[in-house]
Each structure stands twice: as C-alpha cells, then as structure tokens.
C-alpha cells in the first residue's frame, strides 16, 4: 500500500479518455490545495494521458502503483 494519505478517491477504470481526465479535473477543483486524490486508471492510454494532463494543470503526481493486472493507482497532490 501507498505511504501517502488519501483525502478522496476516484475509480476511473473502464472510463475512456478524455472523460477520465475531465472527471479527475472536476474532482480536484472541489478539493483544497495540498489535498491528496487517489485515482484508479486503466493501463494503456489512460495511465499515459491522465497523469500527464494533470501535471500540465500544475498538480503533482506523488506515486504510481499497480492495481491488479490491468490498472494503476496514482496519488495526486492538488497544487
């Protein structure tokens, strides 16, 4: 398990690009600076695209871990 605290969580497995990014962005907008958001993303395009877009919005990716065989769990720190 991740050593980071988690303030909120989104399971976006099965959600396609760019909807997964939009949902992540909307969730981050509800949160406070410094809060941690945990997001579950499918392998392939979602894990390649969503963290990159999150970074471009100025937030920080703290950790990426495998979640089962075909997905990843990422921790985002809101800027």
């Amino acid at each position: 398990m991740s050593k980071f605290k988690v303030d909120d969580s989104l399971d976006l497995r099965g959600v396609l690009c760019p909807i997964n990014f939009v949902k992540t962005k909307l969730k981050l907008e509800e949160m406070e600076p410094g809060d941690h958001l945990e997001v579950l993303l499918d392998e392939g395009d979602p894990i390649a695209n969503v963290p990159r877009s999150v970074k471009e919005e100025g937030h920080m990716i703290l950790k990426v871990d495998r979640e089962g065989e075909h997905a990843y769990r990422i921790i985002i720190k809101k800027s």
Binding site: I47, A48, P51, R52, K63, V64, D65, Y72, I74
Partner: peptide
C-alpha cells in the same frame, strides 16, 4: 526524482 514510477508505466 520523487520515485513515483510514472515513467516506467508510461514508457510504451
């Protein structure tokens, strides 16, 4: 580097 590992999973 913060050791997050995103580059490992992003590298196709």
């Amino acid at each position: 580097c913060n050791g997050c590992g995103i580059c490992e999973v992003t590298c196709k």
